[in-house]
Nucleic acid binder design. Sequence first.
DNA 1: ATAACAATAGCCCAAACAGGTCATTTTATA
DNA 2: TATAAAATGACCTGTTTGGGCTATTGTTAT
Lengths: 207, 207
Amino acid sequence: MSIRIGIVEDHSEFRQSLCFLIASYSDFSVLWACSSVEDAWKQEPADVLLLDINLPGQSGIDAIPEFRSRFPDQKIIMLTILEDEYHIMQAIRNGADGYILKKTAPPRILDSIQQVYEGGAALTPMVARQVLAFFKPAATVQDTNHLTPREKEILALITEGISTDKIADKLFISTQTVRNHIKNIYEKLQVHSKAQAVAKALKEKLV
Amino acid sequence: MSIRIGIVEDHSEFRQSLCFLIASYSDFSVLWACSSVEDAWKQEPADVLLLDINLPGQSGIDAIPEFRSRFPDQKIIMLTILEDEYHIMQAIRNGADGYILKKTAPPRILDSIQQVYEGGAALTPMVARQVLAFFKPAATVQDTNHLTPREKEILALITEGISTDKIADKLFISTQTVRNHIKNIYEKLQVHSKAQAVAKALKEKLV
DNA sequence: ATAACAATAGCCCAAACAGGTCATTTTATA
DNA sequence: TATAAAATGACCTGTTTGGGCTATTGTTAT
C-alpha cells in the first residue's frame, strides 16, 4: 500500500510537477491535488498533506488547525518558498509536522514525506537551523545549581514521566542508584514524591 | 576538497565503522577519530565534528560550549543513541548544529554532514518531532474539555503533590472514589502515573 | 593527605499506587 | 421519561515508591 498524498498548491505548473514526481515512485500516490484550502475541504483525508502557504483564499498556515481537527491522522507538511522565521514558527505552532522548501531536491521531498508518514518530523536544513536558533539564548538561569548534573538529568527524566526502572535502563546504572539520586533530589527540593518533584521542576523551570 | 570530519566516539567498533563509511566517499574524509573529549582537545579543528554523548570523562553535551569557543567554525553534530527530550534539548541549547541517532542509515548520516557543512541544521525525524513539540503549547485546550469538573479538580490536587488519601479527605469522599477518578484521568490523558499526569497537566496548561 | 562531594550499589519495610472488574446514585438532557 | 454521563464506592492483585540505612569508588579542593 502506497502513501496517499494530498496536495494544496495554486501554482499549476509546480502542482503538475509534484504529481509527476510522486507518481513515478511506487511507494507514493497522489490521492488528490487542488489549488485552494476551500477545495481541499471537499476531499477525503490523505496520509500526508503537502500544503502551500501563499494561496488564493485562506492561507495554508491558517488552515492547519482545521485540517488537524477534521482529520487528526493526516500529517501536514508545509511546502513553500517562504523561509522566514515568522512563517516557519507560525506553521510549527499551528501543528505542522514538517516544513520544507520548494527548492528542495525531489528525492528529499519524498524522503520527508516518508519520514513524516512514519511519525517523524521533517525540516529542511535551513529551516531546522532557524528552529534550533530559538533555543540558544535560553541558558536558563537555574536555581538548580544545588542539584548535581546527574540529579538534573534524572529529574528531567522523572519530569517526562519515566519510571525509576526505565531511567536506570536508559542511563545504564542500577535501579538502586537511581533511587538514591531521587532521594537526594527530594531532599534538596523539599518534596516527597515524584508528582511533587515534577510540579516543582516544571513550575520553577528547573528543567 | 573534501569535508574533513572529526569523530569523538568511545565505542571502537562503531568508530571504525564510521571511518570506513566516510572513507568510502570522496567528498568526505576523516581528519581524526578519538574516544574522549579530552583527547579531542589535542586535535586540530575539523570542518564537522561527530560527537557522542555518553563518553568516558566529560560528556559530549557538556563539551559543546568549549568546542564552540575554541573552534567557532567547527560544526557539531551529536551522533548518539539517546533520543530523550532532556539530552536533545541540552545539546541544542549548548549549540549543536545537528542531532542524529546512531541507528540512522549511513547515507543519511553523510547527508546530514553535508547539510550542516553547508550551514544548515540536521535533525533525525524523531528528534525533529520532539523539537517541534516544544512550540505547540495551545492545541490541547480542547483536550481539557473532556475532563469533567471533578476530574479537573482532582488533577489540580495531584499537581500540588497531594496523596490520594489526602485528596479523599479534602473532598470528603472515599479513597476508592478518588482512585476511580484518577484512573479515568489517566485514560483521558493517556498516562500511567501521577508524575506523568502532573507533567502533562503543567506542560499543556491543563490546570 | 584529608575532607567533601558525586556517583555508584545494595538491603529492608511499609505505604502508596496502578490496573482490573463491578455496582449504586445523582444529574442533566435529549 | 429514557438514557447517557458523572460521581460515588468497593474488592483484589501485584508493582512501585519513599524512607531508613550502609558502603565503595573516584574526583576536587583545601
